[in-house]
Amino acid sequence: MYESMLSFPGAVFGDFERLRRELNEALAPTGLPSSIRSVAPGSFPAVNVGNTPGSVEVYAFAPGIDASKIEVSIDRGVLTLAGERRLTGAPDEQKKTSVYGRERISGAFRRAISLPDDVDVDQVQASYRDGVLRVSIARKASAQPRRITVQ
């Protein structure tokens, strides 16, 4: 008479999740992040954040920026990346050029990334190569797993 929930098709739940996401996108105010940890679509620079057993790794994809003009700072557990991207190779607006599309973001930017509590802010390395800013923050030695020998 009643079917078991275990035999209920799993694809239905996937359809509900897809519908929920589509409704959130349709009803959410445009350009605003969907949660406190996310950012608005099109935020610059795009970042990947990950970790290794010994460090937290942040990669920011920011082509066309002078490395000496990128500011990297850590304050109270928040990594901040800031700088300015100048628009080069674009039509000159003083010549009354009609622009039909502009997809490259230009101007000042600032990204803030929350860091875990076990990072050592005294051991930070930052490098910029081929349009990718890499920031590596070491974890505190006290947070590292260590092996204890049994006597």
Rank of each mutant, 00 (worst) to 15 (best):
A141P: 01
A67M: 04
D122P: 00
G31L: 07
E57Q: 13
G83M: 05
V58M: 06
P91G: 15
R110F: 00
K69A: 14
F44G: 04
Q123M: 09
R76V: 03
I70N: 06
R129L: 13
G89N: 09
G54H: 12
D75M: 03
T97F: 00
Q125Y: 01
E84V: 08
V119M: 05
A46H: 06
Y59G: 02
R146D: 07
D118M: 03
I65S: 10
M1E: 11
L19H: 10
T88N: 06
S4Y: 01
F44E: 04
F16T: 03
P41E: 15
R139W: 09
S98C: 00
G131V: 07
V58T: 10
S43P: 03
A60R: 02
S43E: 08
A67F: 03
A60H: 05
V121E: 15
A11F: 14
R104H: 05
V47I: 15
G89V: 09
E57K: 13
V150F: 12
A28S: 15
A40S: 15
R147N: 12
V119N: 02
T97E: 14
I36Y: 07
G10M: 04
A90W: 05
L6T: 13
A90K: 10
L32I: 07
Q144V: 00
Y100F: 14
E93W: 04
E3V: 11
A82T: 00
Q151H: 08
A40G: 11
T80P: 05
G107R: 04
R21I: 04
A108T: 06
R76Y: 06
G89Y: 03
S98F: 08
A90C: 01
F61D: 10
Q144R: 13
R146K: 14
R76A: 14
G42P: 04
T80F: 02
R146H: 14
T97A: 15
A67P: 15
R129M: 06
P116F: 02
S34W: 02
D130G: 02
G54P: 00
V121K: 10
V99A: 08
S98V: 15
I70D: 05
K140I: 10
P29Y: 04
P116G: 01
D130L: 10
E71V: 10
D117S: 12
Y59M: 11
V121D: 14
D75G: 02
F44Q: 05
D92A: 11
E84D: 12
D122T: 15
V56K: 02
Q125D: 11
R139I: 09
S73Q: 12
